[in-house]
Amino acid sequence: MSIINYISMIAMPAIILIIITYSLIEKNKVYDNFLEGAKEGVSIVYNIFPTLVGLFVAVGALRASGILDVIINFISPVIEGFNIPKEIMPLAILRPISGSASMAVATDIMNSYGVDSKIGQIASVIMGSTETTLYTIAVYTSCVKIKKTRGILMAALIGDIVGMLVSVIICNIL
């Protein structure tokens, strides 16, 4: 367990170190390149901010009104067999559909149940290990104007479900 924590801890600094050292040996303009990328980072956050405000309000209102608990309790018997905490369900449902909405829900979950609690960790791992499946499929099929997708949605969603189940299992073990 401590090894897993250690690898998690050193992964980011190690990668940064390797990249900078390698680039330096190549005699690239390391800092100029850094600034170029960092600028793009600003524009990403700038672009996502309005979405965040809109969705945080919507998701926050859903929770405060009490309707979220009603829905969660309604579906909980189905998922409790899999040992999945019911609090995760809103995230699991929204994750393949919308990147920004699932980000708002995940943040809300981490905030409400504790970022370092088991539920908070599961939400983190699900966010990190899955993608916005529906959006990805839509972008890549529409750019070549293809209509017949041969069950690719099923394959991708099965992958998502497995990823979520494994997230729950791993967090239950740790």
């Binding site: 924590n5 998690s8 791992v125």
Partner: peptide, 20 residues
């Protein structure tokens, strides 16, 4: 420990990719 989830994320991603 914000980065504690890195290794679990790798595990979950690999399983989901292999299955997909």
């Amino acid at each position: 420990n914000p980065t504690a989830i890195v290794t679990p994320v790798w595990g979950a991603s690999i399983c989901s990719i292999i299955i997909a």
